[in-house]
């Protein structure tokens, strides 16, 4: 029953197969994903790349792909006065075999500029909503993983 529902869900883009990897910067998150998923560099889309526009994302490979430096993409979208949450949600519906890697950015002093504050808050909130939908959530510290979900 459950399985059928999953299949149906996927068919209509509702069953999301997404893994979320979070952690501070420079903690070896991407290396960790390479090590545990067997995926290679060609499966990686970086947060900000010149070859694509922020809201015209090109999926790097068929099948499971890695969205690295998600926070950079999110911030750039905000800078461009676009809506990162809706764009990412749509992308997840269309291409849900995905591992999202995102820096934790909320554990510092409240930034002075409104843009920085909004970036921090909206990304934090969006990560909560991703975590809710994710199949698994892991936090990486110095290359080690802690399973949160």
């Amino acid at each position: 029953m459950c399985y059928k529902f999953m299949l149906k869900g996927n068919q209509y883009g509702l069953g999301i197969i997404m893994k979320l990897i979070i952690g501070g910067c420079c903690q070896g998150k991407l290396q960790y994903v390479y090590r545990t998923s067997g995926l290679l560099q060609d499966a990686v889309l970086y947060g900000v790349e010149n070859k694509y526009k922020t809201d015209e994302i090109q999926i790097p490979v068929e099948g499971t792909w890695i969205w690295n430096d998600f926070q950079d993409w999110f911030q750039k979208m905000l800078e461009e006065r676009k809506d990162p949450e809706t764009t990412a949600d749509q992308l997840l519906i269309d291409h849900s075999n995905i591992i999202i890697i995102c820096d934790e950015i909320g554990n510092g002093i409240v930034p002075l500029s409104i843009e920085e504050r909004l970036y921090r808050e909206r990304l934090g909130k969006y990560l909560c909503s991703l975590a809710e939908r994710a199949e698994s959530v892991e936090r990486i510290l110095c290359g080690l993983s802690q399973k949160l979900k």
């Binding site: 952690g23 420079c26 934790e104 909320g106």
Partner: peptide
């Protein structure tokens, strides 16, 4: 590593190194 601030190049290098 968790304050999300983009520091200048030498500090980023230091963060990468310590990480």
């Amino acid at each position: 590593f968790e304050d999300g601030i983009k520091y200048d190049e030498s500090v980023i290098k230091y963060q990468k190194l310590l990480g």
